[in-house]
Amino acid sequence: MTNCTYGLEDRVNNDGRIGVAACLVDQRNKQWKMVLKKWVRVSDSGKVLQSFLLSGAWSDVVEANGLRDGDNISLWSFRLNGFLFFALDFAGDSINFLE
């Protein structure tokens, strides 16, 4: 299924933190190499904030899928043969959940 193959040399080191190699797959089965990283930052008030981010060719994913600011997408994660995948689910126009 995958042409997103990684070896140990493909792991990304960011300030001493190594990310987890992953593959993002869109609805047309096009695939991109990505890296899931933990992001830790300190707010102006001194509070430590932790989140996760996908780094890699995100701008290529946006362009290939015609994504625009405000679009509603979901990312589903799964493992196949021990490898992490994210499946992009794009519903089209953005949804205003406040209406």
Score class of each variant (00 low, 15 high):
30 K>D: 07
80 L>E: 12
97 F>N: 06
1 M>W: 01
91 A>P: 01
67 L>M: 05
48 V>D: 06
38 K>Q: 13
69 D>G: 01
37 K>W: 04
31 Q>R: 00
92 G>A: 06
41 R>K: 15
45 S>N: 13
41 R>W: 14
8 L>T: 15
43 S>P: 05
43 S>M: 08
85 F>E: 04
77 S>A: 08
37 K>R: 13
95 I>R: 09
45 S>T: 13
55 S>D: 04
27 Q>T: 10
3 N>G: 01
25 V>C: 02
4 C>G: 01
47 K>S: 10
85 F>W: 02
69 D>V: 11
77 S>G: 06
29 N>H: 10
59 S>D: 11
10 D>Q: 11
20 V>S: 14
77 S>L: 05
66 G>M: 06
95 I>V: 10
53 L>F: 11
32 W>S: 00
13 N>G: 10
36 L>Y: 06
4 C>W: 00
55 S>A: 09
49 L>E: 12
86 F>R: 05
72 N>H: 12
13 N>M: 15
14 N>H: 14
1 M>T: 02
10 D>C: 08
58 W>K: 05
98 L>A: 10
33 K>E: 00
74 S>T: 07
65 N>R: 04
71 D>A: 03
14 N>P: 03
42 V>M: 13
38 K>P: 08
62 V>K: 09
72 N>Y: 07
47 K>T: 15
35 V>I: 10
16 G>D: 15
45 S>E: 13
60 D>G: 02
16 G>F: 13
62 V>H: 03
88 L>D: 02
55 S>W: 02
22 A>N: 04
53 L>S: 07
1 M>S: 08
18 I>Q: 14
43 S>W: 07
46 G>F: 04
46 G>S: 07
77 S>V: 05
33 K>M: 00
26 D>A: 02
38 K>M: 09
23 C>N: 03
33 K>G: 00
80 L>N: 05
97 F>C: 06
21 A>D: 11
15 D>V: 14
27 Q>L: 08
32 W>L: 01
48 V>E: 15
24 L>S: 01
1 M>F: 04
99 E>H: 08
3 N>Q: 04
86 F>M: 03
87 A>N: 13
47 K>Y: 11
4 C>Q: 00
16 G>C: 14
12 V>G: 07
11 R>M: 13
6 Y>V: 07
3 N>A: 00
7 G>P: 04
